[in-house]
Simulated scan of single mutants.
Amino acid sequence: MADLLDSDEAISEYLTQVLADGDTDEILRAIGHIAKARGMAQIAQQTGLGRESLYKTFGPGAKPRFDTALKVIRALGIDLLAQPHALLPR
């Protein structure tokens, strides 16, 4: 997967789709894939977290703290934006 994430546009499209699906485990896996594509050693250096720790943090079954995930998201240069859902007719 990391090989397909070779541009900011590809990363944005991938993460947007995963976020829209709303599966927490898949979101964490996606962040891990993006970190691998950008270089786990570089992300480790930017976040102050160990490289091996990052692999475990985004590995199968991991339940990282939100602040850890957010720290990695910021190091990846990704902005998360909130917008309201479309209103459903009553």
Rank of each mutant, 00 (worst) to 15 (best):
S12Q: 15
S12M: 06
E52Q: 13
D21T: 05
G77F: 08
G22P: 11
K36M: 11
A2I: 00
G61D: 09
G61I: 03
D67C: 06
D8Y: 04
A37Y: 07
A62Q: 04
Q46W: 02
Q42T: 10
D23K: 09
A82I: 11
A20S: 12
H33P: 02
L19E: 05
I31V: 14
D25L: 08
D8M: 03
S12I: 12
I27R: 12
P64I: 07
T47V: 08
M1P: 11
Q42C: 02
G39K: 00
T16L: 05
I27V: 15
G59Y: 07
I43N: 08
S53A: 13
G22M: 09
H85F: 14
T16G: 10
D3P: 13
D67P: 02
G48Q: 08
D6Y: 11
A82Q: 12
A35I: 01
D79N: 15
V72E: 01
R29S: 15
R90K: 14
A75M: 00
A10R: 03
A2Y: 06
R65K: 14
A2V: 04
P64G: 13
L54W: 04
I34K: 02
H85E: 15
A62C: 06
I27P: 01
I34D: 01
D8K: 06
I11W: 04
L88I: 14
G50N: 13
E13Y: 07
E13F: 10
V18S: 12
L15F: 15
G39L: 02
G77K: 05
